[in-house]
Write a protein that binds this DNA or RNA. Structure first.
Lengths: 196, 196
DNA sequence: TGTGTTTTTGACCATTTGGTCATAAAGTAT
DNA sequence: ATACTTTATGACCAAATGGTCAAAAACACA
């Protein structure tokens, strides 16, 4: 048909995302994105669109690679206690591994772009809804009724997001474990009927 | 001695703060600040310093006018349950009154500037510490031991910050009340000994 | 009234910003 | 080969950015 792309789209988006992740939308310049991606400005615009589109694509990429893995875990096997534990521990582990100071791009986007960019807000709401549904379902499996599950899931997400904010504000790593343990306290205890 | 200031410093800072509050640091231009304050660029620089200094001053003003009132309330009379209830309800009420979409400047600063600006990070940490100490003290009054109180206070702040993020991401107003109620579940029940 | 000091003013600046576009290059299909 | 279509390239742009500065203005004090 015509001249083919010389770059891998996913790979480029991953590199763009890292910039937005660590610097935020406004503090990121097209120069930063050009340098990080290895492409030239014209190619970036041609392939993805303007800066807002690049950000939206980056956020979607973040959600589908970083958040969706958590959703899959929540939808997988295991009891709720184990799942919520892993929800936090996955972040704790990642924090210990990297020195990366970007925090959670989903939270960052919520505070920096949700109000000013409708498409971003929509992507955020959809992703949070997915997270919530996964937690609700995991709770219902253990016999928690619909309303309690919905209420509890929203609360856990609040606590989860809050820790990501506090962590970026310089809170010690132990704080995240502390928050995790308090969330566990609110969950139904292991089903003793089933283990007997 | 010399020519006196023609403006009220607190009043100007209040107007600057509102801009940073609603737009964030990077998205705010000196033009925005000039328009909002009524001063000219030269006066702003002469009186406060550069943009970073304006932001830091705005954040400190936010903390001393918006957060410190919460700290005072926590340090005042009443049992913990009532205090934590009011901690959330004050925000819920303010949200219902204003259509203002700035969220919490302390949270915004945590995600946008804590990593890149040491002075901002310090101000944030100091303010959060004050919040935490106030909650810890309120808990200790009710007989909660030091360690439990510290752990619980940190958790409540996580939940509190998390709701502010979710709210800005478009969560319904009821979510904040839901988070409040779950926090209350973790608190010691009203001291029945004392009421008998 | 005159002197000294600080503020106010707005013109000015280099640099950077996000974004465009004509051209060249690189493929594919005939 | 040739024509056609898409991509890559980098020069280019108007506008906006944060920040400066010399001059004028406004006060306090002697």
């Amino acid at each position: 048909m015509a001249r083919p792309r010389e770059f891998d789209e996913q790979q480029v988006i991953e590199s763009l995302m890292k910039v937005f992740w660590s610097k935020g939308y406004e503090a990121t310049t097209m120069q930063d994105l050009v340098k990080a991606s290895g492409l030239l400005k014209g190619s970036l615009y041609g392939a993805f669109g303007d800066k807002q589109a690049l950000y939206l694509a980056s956020l979607k990429h973040y959600n589908s690679t970083r958040i969706h893995s958590q959703v899959d875990m929540l939808n997988g096997d295991g009891n709720v206690r184990r799942k919520i534990t892993r929800l936090f521990d996955n972040v704790i582990d990642a924090t210990k591994r990297d020195i990366f100071a970007g925090g959670c791009l989903l939270c960052n986007a919520s505070l920096e772009k949700a109000v000013s960019d409708k498409l971003v807000k929509n992507e955020i709401k959809t992703t949070i809804r997915r997270l919530k549904v996964a937690i609700v379902d995991a709770l219902k499996v253990e016999g928690v009724n619909e309303d309690s599950a919905a209420s509890l899931a929203a609360f856990i997400i609040s606590a989860y997001f809050g820790t990501r904010v506090l962590a970026k504000a310089g809170a010690p790593a132990a704080m995240m474990g502390n928050t995790r343990d308090h969330c566990l306290q609110l969950l139904p205890k292991a089903d003793l009927n089933r283990s007997s």
